[in-house]
Each structure stands twice: as C-alpha cells, then as structure tokens.
C-alpha cells in the first residue's frame, strides 16, 4: 500500500468501514513504515474517538415532554377540525348538487320557452297579417278575414306579451327572423286560404283603342298580353278611377297587333268570391 491509497482509506479504516483483513493488515504495515501516514492515522483515530465521545454524550438527549403533549393536543384538535371540515364539505357537496339540478331544470324550461317563442310569433304574425291584409277592396278584406278566422292556426294560444317582450329583448335576432318567417308563412297561408275557400273572378272593361288606331284593325287579330299598370293609367283612357287608389296597380290586357304595335287595352280587376 502506498501513501496515496492509505490516505484515501484512512477515514474508512478509522471508522472500521473496511472489512477486508488483508487491506487492513497492509495499511497497518504501511503506518509503521511511513511517519506522515502514521501522523495522519493518529489524527483520524483521535477524531473518531472525540466524535464518539460527543455522540455518547448526546445519546440520551430527547425532546422535552411538553412537545408530546402539544402534539397530542394538536392531533385531537386536528381530528375535530377535520370532522367539522368534512361535514362542511358534505353540506357543500349536496348544496352544489341541488344548485346544479335547479340550474338544469331552469335551463330546460328556458330552452322550451325559447323554442315556443320561435314558433308562437309566426302564428301571431300570420294571424295579424291575415286579419289586416293589404287588399284591393273592402269585400276582399272581409272575405280574407272571414277565411282566416276559419283556419285552425288562429285557434292556437298566443304567447303572453311580457314573455314575448323578454324573449325579443334576449334574442332580438331570432325574433326578427321569426317575424320574417312568419310574414312569409302568412303570405303562403293567405294564398292557400284564398285558394281553398274563394274563387277568383275577373271583371274587365271594354277594349279601348290605343292612339289613333282604327276599330277595324281589331279584326285583324293579334295577341293579348297581360300587363300590370298603375291605376292612374285608367284616367288616360278616359275611364273613371278613385284618385285615392292612384298609386295602386291594376292588371290590363293589351292587344298587340301582328305588326307588334298595341292596338287596344282593357283593364281587368280580379275579385275573390267566397264559396260558402
């Protein structure tokens, strides 16, 4: 064994950590031959001895009694606190569960109301438009009113005004869409009602010559073209008209000759006649 090896193992040798007998023997031989290593070995032995004394002196050292008492008190308190905590947790758990159920119920109800609100305004608008449609004549108004009154849709219950206002405030876009859809629906319903319950009848004026045409030209034949003109056009042909309805439009049949020129015109008014 050389000095380097001995100094590396000196601490382990002093602590009896090296159990190899041959290694211990060679170290003992080296110590006897080398003064420096002998000094280092003595230092190690002395240190081990002193450390052992310190260790022996403190072997009986223990924490004071009051610490155990404090710990046990803390343990009891903790157990009590834990039990209170767990009770509170249980209470919170059930409250949270109940709140979740209530929220779900309200959610479902709100969704159903929302769906109903989307449907109901259609009915309402259709019924409104059906009761007050733009009509050409009072008779037609009356006939449409009568027709709509007889439809089953008008018997459906309307949404309460407060709820409708709330829904329109909450979902303005959907309410506008619903109204638009309802208007379309009302038009379709109106047409279908008229088709089922009323017969249309056309009342026409006599043909009036257009321009400086000759009545004999009408004999040449031609083609009738249905056009729509403002009511005010009737006045230009010398026909009586209600000035209050001048902006309204009226249908007309134009007789177009073989040369493509308009020969004559007659005005046609479509009227609905109620079957029953």
């Amino acid at each position: 064994m050389n000095c380097e090896k001995f100094l590396t193992d000196a601490a382990d040798l002093a602590r009896n950590q090296i159990v190899d007998a041959s290694e211990r023997a060679s170290a003992r031989v080296h110590v006897e031959q080398c003064d420096d290593c002998r000094r280092a070995w003595n230092d190690q032995l002395e240190l081990s001895e002193r450390l052992r004394k310190v260790a022996d002196q403190m072997t009986s050292s223990r924490a004071p009694e009051h610490i155990e008492a404090q710990l046990l008190t803390a343990f009891r308190d903790r157990t009590r606190v834990v039990s209170i905590h767990s009770a509170q947790k249980r209470w919170r758990y059930w409250m949270t569960a109940a709140a979740a159920v209530v929220l779900m119920v309200f959610g479902v109800l709100a969704w159903r109301w929302h769906v109903a609100s989307v449907r109901q305004p259609q009915v309402e608008v259709s019924s409104k438009s059906a009761t007050a449609p733009p009509s050409d004549s009072p008779k037609q108004e009356q006939s449409q009113t009568v027709a709509v009154k007889g439809t089953p849709s008008s018997t459906q219950p309307l949404i309460k005004p407060t709820l409708r206002r709330w829904l329109s405030r909450r979902h303005p876009a959907s309410s506008q869409l619903a109204k638009r859809d309802a208007a379309k629906q009302s038009t379709v319903e109106q047409a279908s009602v008229l088709a089922t319950n009323a017969e249309t009848k056309e009342l026409a004026t006599d043909f009036v010559l257009v321009g400086y045409g000759n009545a004999l030209d009408l004999q040449d034949g031609g083609q009738l073209v249905r056009v729509e003109l403002p009511r005010s056009a009737m006045a230009t042909f010398g026909l009586p008209m209600n000035m209050d309805r001048a902006d309204e439009r009226i249908k007309a049949d134009v007789l177009v000759g073989t040369d493509g020129r308009a020969r004559a015109i007659r005005f046609v008014e479509v009227k609905a006649i109620i079957k029953n």
Partner: peptide, 24 residues
C-alpha cells in the same frame, strides 16, 4: 386513521433521533 395512541407510540419511538439530529 385517527389513532392518538399510535401517534404517541410513533413519537416516543422516533423523536430521539429527530431531536438529536436537529440539535447536532
């Protein structure tokens, strides 16, 4: 599990080494 006696036994068994370590 909440056994106070177990804590006391464990403390008496192990407090010495912990206390000595901290003291040293």
């Amino acid at each position: 599990a909440g056994d106070e006696e177990a804590l006391a036994a464990l403390y008496r068994k192990r407090q010495g080494s912990v206390y000595r370590f901290a003291l040293q």
